[in-house]
Design a protein around this nucleic acid. Sequence first.
DNA 1: TTTGTTTGTTAAGGTGCGTAACATAATAAG
DNA 2: CTTATTATGTTACGCACCTTAACAAACAAA
Lengths: 387, 387
Amino acid sequence: MEQKQLSEADIRAAFTSSARSVFRTLFQSGPATRPQLGSTLGLSRPTLSSSIAELFAAGYVEKIGEVQGPLGRKAAMYRLGAGAGHVIAIDAGSTHVRTRVTTLDRRLLHHRVYRLSSNQRHLGAEISHAVAEEVEATLALTEPGWGKLRALGIALPSRVVADNAARAATGQENLFSHFTPPDGVPLLLENNVNCAALAEQSHGVAQGLNDFAYIQIGLKIGMGLVLGGRLIRGRSGAAGEIGHLPFPWGPGLRPQNAGLEDYVGAEALMQRTRAAWPQDAGAAPADTAALFALAGEGHAAALAQVKRHAEDIGAIVSACVGVVDPGIVVLGGGIGDNAIMLPYVRETVDRLSYPTEIHASSLGADATVLGIEKIAADHACELLVGK
Amino acid sequence: MEQKQLSEADIRAAFTSSARSVFRTLFQSGPATRPQLGSTLGLSRPTLSSSIAELFAAGYVEKIGEVQGPLGRKAAMYRLGAGAGHVIAIDAGSTHVRTRVTTLDRRLLHHRVYRLSSNQRHLGAEISHAVAEEVEATLALTEPGWGKLRALGIALPSRVVADNAARAATGQENLFSHFTPPDGVPLLLENNVNCAALAEQSHGVAQGLNDFAYIQIGLKIGMGLVLGGRLIRGRSGAAGEIGHLPFPWGPGLRPQNAGLEDYVGAEALMQRTRAAWPQDAGAAPADTAALFALAGEGHAAALAQVKRHAEDIGAIVSACVGVVDPGIVVLGGGIGDNAIMLPYVRETVDRLSYPTEIHASSLGADATVLGIEKIAADHACELLVGK
DNA sequence: TTTGTTTGTTAAGGTGCGTAACATAATAAG
DNA sequence: CTTATTATGTTACGCACCTTAACAAACAAA
């Protein structure tokens, strides 16, 4: 193993810098012809020739066809080869465990959704068990054509910190109660909301943006922050833990620990809704989905609740704008991506903050897996050819 | 002028990459011997020889002496030469205009403090006038040994945005009512709180840190945020405008625009203090300095006010931790760097947030000027030898 | 003075890219 | 069907930038 890793590093060192940038381009942008690579990277044809020869010899790229332009000779088209390997991405969610296996340039090799027997509020034994099974099953059906497994990424519903000492407090260690990660494969853990934010950046509303905030509103509330193109994790992995914003707060009002999380969560919302529900308005909605359905039909009592909730969300957004002014905020999660709230959220933010675009997420339940997949693929690419 | 700039760019292109990195090292770390440069940069002696020859020929470095080790030949010591030029940094503050002129490697060539006739609450005509005079005076006494003026940096008590269209709303344009910037010199504007934050990073409590928040508490309140080694400015230059955090905020409480700024400012603090001051406690303090002095002596009523204020500051810090979790927060400004508040702030943050170190700034009134000076010097260096 | 050590220079070689010229393969025009 | 034009790919060669090796210079200690 040690020997293999060393030879891997040797391969990387052996590649010329132009070869590495060709690899990175194919990694980021998918298949391309030599002339395309040459013009985007500003490299000459001879350089490209030797770069591709290097990569091809290592199995890192392969030719997948030829493209005929309007005139002249056909151009050869290349993509990452089997030697580049593949990654496994797992979203260890509270209701489902979603698994995706892809090449580094994101070609789907395998995917699967496993439904948990019950709603897991915290990262615990059942999730750990499910992850172990998913990994084992995936490893079992690995095909030779996939190449080496380069990274295993897992998105967790907990804070995630790299620092060994601080881990115990996050609960992230519970992942390993029934799951032993495979040997010799880089294991990447990331918070699920952060993953969803990255997915918005690579596949969703925040496509290509370097600065934005993603706020996920569901049972709980959380934020993923991307600034300067980088995910902001925070010293304790607590960046985006906006459930800990000071609340309630005002003259003579003492903020409570996690007071906002308790107030703005789905349970509290439904409790307030039931308490305020008029006698003559029919049966109170059973859950948030029912509440938003009623509001969508124009039901006055439901709409009033939704509006008040949206104003609270707006205040949360304003807190984020006041601290980092991201310019763009994406709302996601079962409650957040609801279109009914959007205008009320915007109204509140307009009243309280500097100009901020607010969008609803269009990505569905796959967002988190796609995010952790990107993290795993990025890591694998960096491992092979550096930054 | 156009011609000069072109030839300047040519010089940069003419330098080898090793020469550029030698320049950057001398810029960042000050004078060094050749062996030192060689070992820190991993360059061989012949390479260093030619790099320094290049830079010396352009006047970018000069020899300032020789150092004798315990054994062997003396090592030549170099620093940036006159050809590298100098920068002017100006803090256009509300009570003083501070000017510093330095070489790129921060050797002080000239400095001056100009006291404004009255406290300027906003960036207006008098500040503009004072800046114009300071720049003119400095340009007049420029010595040939200083080399070319490479950049002029000005710290402003307003939001600063690069985008032309959005400028009008910030008030930053008021700077130019009586001040015309010199031709052909890069002009760099930055918010004064952001500058103070950078000064903490280069000279103060946050020395060398890549992630921290600097919160300035005085007449008004503001924050400078450094994450991943970079200053976070925000889409509208409004990152750190924490006076716009939602406040008051709670069940049935509607946040007001800039409600926190009004509540937590020095004026409001003194108003509350006067209102709550007991009849038998002597005369109420006239200003915050007097209030903190009394609190320092153990005066109960004063201490109660300071403590309550510290709890509000603690809530503000908690809001920042909830959004970005910087890990370290530096408190500055006339009120913020007061040691009496520190334990109460810490108490509140400990109660509400993830572990966060909180320090009082040790830099005095020069912080802002030092920060804009660093911005100007960095820009000048990048101009000469790239990133 | 000699010896060993560090610094600086000169000479020679290698890597990674470029340009120039040529070979190849396609379309368009006659 | 041949020829002209154009784009792609390869080969030959040169340049820029760095390295190692060897040598020269300058110092302290023996």
